[in-house]
Each structure stands twice: as structure tokens, then as C-alpha cells.
Design a protein around this nucleic acid. Sequence first.
DNA 1: CGCTGGATTGAGTCCGGTCAAGCCTTGTGG
DNA 2: CCACAAGGCTTGACCGGACTCAATCCAGCG
Lengths: 216, 216
Amino acid sequence: MSLPPPAVPPAPPAPLALAAILRRAARPAAFDKDARIFDQDAAADSLHLVTAGVVRTVRLLPDGRRQVGGFYYPGETIGFETAATHAFSAEALGPCEVASVRRASLDALADPVVLGHALAEAMQRELARTQAHLLVLGRKSACEKVATFLKTLAQPGRGSPVPLPMGRQDIADHLGLTIETVSRMLTHLQGAEVVRFETCRNFQVTRWDALERLAA
Amino acid sequence: MSLPPPAVPPAPPAPLALAAILRRAARPAAFDKDARIFDQDAAADSLHLVTAGVVRTVRLLPDGRRQVGGFYYPGETIGFETAATHAFSAEALGPCEVASVRRASLDALADPVVLGHALAEAMQRELARTQAHLLVLGRKSACEKVATFLKTLAQPGRGSPVPLPMGRQDIADHLGLTIETVSRMLTHLQGAEVVRFETCRNFQVTRWDALERLAA
DNA sequence: CGCTGGATTGAGTCCGGTCAAGCCTTGTGG
DNA sequence: CCACAAGGCTTGACCGGACTCAATCCAGCG
């Protein structure tokens, strides 16, 4: 049972300027579990701010293989994937709320320079997240992948126990693994007393240093 | 021997507005083979436009594992990875030229709105590229990875034979494979008469449809 | 209470990694 | 011009980690 990361989180996910702009611009719409918020290959003409619940981005290959791009928590924005069409579709993990704003109407919402910086900031964040994930997918073992994932989830303010709003299949498709391998690694990490699962949908980190080391 | 993709390429990598702005702003500097253009974890305070040669982005893990983020050809810009520090370092594949512009001096170079759009366009392109690569790393077999890679290289205007400016190790670290597996898959693709290698540094696509199918 | 879908566990297989030779190209110096 | 060295690429034999298939467990719920 070692210390949590920094006693005070360095910054609560940093209030994004873009989130503030979007929140003012649109009333959130509600989505049910597994509802599609936007479709892959659809025109990418809006930005979407998650205001409640959690959203996953998903890319489906014609043969059924699935890649989960990421999980998005309240305050995070999705939808600037591609100029023309979305590379991923977005789906509600559970009941959630999303505020959507058309790109075309964006310019009228804020000073163009401020807006430009807000957009750049959000896109940089998204790019950094995606690039970090490249490393995980390309060069890490199954155990390291799962450890990295748990570490990321436990990072922010989300207290202890950390909720795990996504199912095993979503985790597997996020990490490029199978559901069985994810399950095995989770039990292995629990056996090594690195984390402890109370239910299969939330966990506590019991040895933070070990988790960091395993995440490599 | 099937038809090349579209008889006329849809757009020669699309002349990016950002490239034009950067090219006007800085005289390209020359780099030797394997020279470091910027370092991972260094402050990310400049944008870098490749004007000649090819550049690779690389992330090194403490234990020596390596992930190649991508390969950048003349006209492409690198360096907006992260707000604070670079996630990847950039290295010259061979002799090359790069024009670097400090972010701070960027605002003086063009109308802020134009600049904002140019930046957004370039970042979207980069994000799309990275997300496409996520799918490759997470959900594709070794053969599909290599086929996808060759297909991407053969895509643009680069005529036939397509030059392969990077070594096998770079390809391997880009695709999350070993050098041996890359080599095996290349000979396998050649045995299936999908591509033909004249030397190990350039190839022709002999059956485009098969390559597309294998890339899945 | 039994049903249903998700999660876990186990046994066996296979793809891709590891280790180890060889080969081929390139460049250098006699 | 040839000999040689060096690095990069290829090929082969073997191994192991992750996948597959299948059975079981478990929690939530009608």
C-alpha cells in the first residue's frame, strides 16, 4: 500500500477553454447505453463535448475486428478526427450527455483567435493521447498494456476505488488484446497485490510503485 | 499486374497552407543521415517543415524498445505533438533539409485566422494519420501490417518503382514487429506476386487488388 | 428462483519473437 | 581491380506469449 501518485493531482484534467466555449453553445442531449453519438465515415461536421457519463470511440473493420480509440470523460471533446469524415464512431458507454456544436457555427461563438487557440489546445491533447497509445499498442506486452491502462484510469482525481465504466471487451479492443487475456492479466495483477478488485467494475491500487514499474 | 490506384492521383498530397507559410518563414537547414532534428521530451517550441529528404519520428523506451511514429516527406510538418514537450524525437532518414519556425514567432507570419485554419488542417491530418495507425498496430496481423505499409507508400504520386527510403529496422519499429518478421512478410508478398523488389530499397506493385485485399 | 450476459479459468494451438547462421551489397584500402 | 570487412537483409529452427475454443462461474434481474 504505497502513496497515491502526487498527493495533490497536478491539475484536475485542466479545464479546457474549448469545453467552456462548447458548453455555452449547446444544450447537452441525452444518450442511452450503447447509443451511437456519431458514425464512422459520416461527415465530421460537429464537435461533441461530453458533459456526463463516458463515451468510447470505435472503429469497426469490415470483418468485425474492433478498435476502441479511447474513452472520454466529462469535459473532454471528440469529433475533430478528420477533416472530411470521422475515422471512428462514438458510442455511449452508459447513459450519458453530450453537447454537439456544428463546426460552421463555431466561428460565431468566440473570438477567432481565442477559438483557434482553444481548438489547437484540444487537438494537441488528443494527438498526444493518441501518440501515447501508439507506443502501448506497438511495443508493450499484454501485462504492460493492462497495467498502463489501469494506471491511466487511476491517474486523475477519480478517488479510490476507481470506477471502471467499460466492460472487458471494450478494454480488450482498446489494448489490442482478447477479452480472455485482459481477464488473465487482471487476475494476475491482483494476485501480485498490485491492485484489488472489489467488483469487476471498480478497483483500488494497492501498490502504486509496482503498477508504475509494470506499466514500463 | 493490375491498374495503379486512380489513374490520376486524387490530389498530390494536397499542398498544405501551413507548408506555404512555414516555407516563407525560414531557410531550410541541412541534416545528415541519422541526425537528430529534435529530441523527445525536449521543449516543443517549434514547428518543422520537411523540404527535402525523409524524416522519421521515434520514441525510445528506457529499456531500448523503439516505436517509429511515422515517416515524413517533403511538404509535411512535424512538431505539434504536445503542448509542453515532444512525445517523439525526429531523425533524418538520409541527408535532408528541414525549415524550423518558433511557435512564438508564428503569429507574426500570417493573418491569425488564416494561420489558425492552416494549423488546424495540418493537425487534423496528423491526427487522422495517427488514428489510422492505431488500427494497424492494434488489430492487424503481421502480413496485413506490412501490406498496409507498402500500400501507403505506393499511394502518392511516387512513381514506379516506389523508393523505400527506410531500413527494415525502421519498418519493424513502425509496425510493432521484428526485423525478421518484416523480412519474411516481404518475401512472402513477393512470392505471392503482389509486389516485386528489384533491390531491397525499392519495389513495384504487381497486383494492386491483391495488395488492397491483404491490407484489409 | 432460474435466466442471461459478462467474467473467469483451463487446455491446446499458432503466430510472431528469439537465436543463430548465412548471404548480399556497399564501401574501403591495398 | 580485387580482397576484405562491415552492415543490412534473409533464411531456418525453435520457443513462448497471446489467441482460440470451451467449460464454468457469478452477478444482476425479471
